[in-house]
């Protein structure tokens, strides 16, 4: 049933690129961080489809989880109102 996995990977690739565009065009930093977390998330499902469950788990827990949380921690400290 490989065609199904192929279609899923095309969908995920499109989603990654869309989230990357959201990252570039985001007006506030928090949206940019959220969108880059989404890119990591889709990349992690992509790793699973590429038969790398170890990497998928690492990317989900570390790349998408902890990195995003660290960004929000630092962003919460920097409260200068306007970031741009």
């Amino acid at each position: 049933m490989s065609p199904l996995l192929l279609t899923m990977s095309v969908l995920l690739a499109a989603a990654m690129i869309v989230a990357g565009i959201v990252t570039i065009r985001a007006r506030t930093i928090s949206i940019a961080i959220l969108a880059s977390g989404a890119v990591s998330l889709f990349a992690s499902v992509m790793f699973l489809l590429l038969a790398a469950p170890d990497v998928a788990m690492t990317e989900a827990a570390i790349g998408s989880g902890l990195t995003t949380f660290l960004f929000f921690f630092v962003l919460g400290r920097i409260r200068s109102g306007n970031y741009d």
Binding site: P53, D54, A56, M57, T58, A61, I62, G65, L66, F69
Partner: peptide
């Protein structure tokens, strides 16, 4: 199974978070 020290460590840290 998939997983290991780094992922498990990250999940442990998530509970601290």
């Amino acid at each position: 199974s998939p997983g290991g020290g780094f992922q498990g460590g990250a999940i442990v840290a998530s509970s601290v978070l």
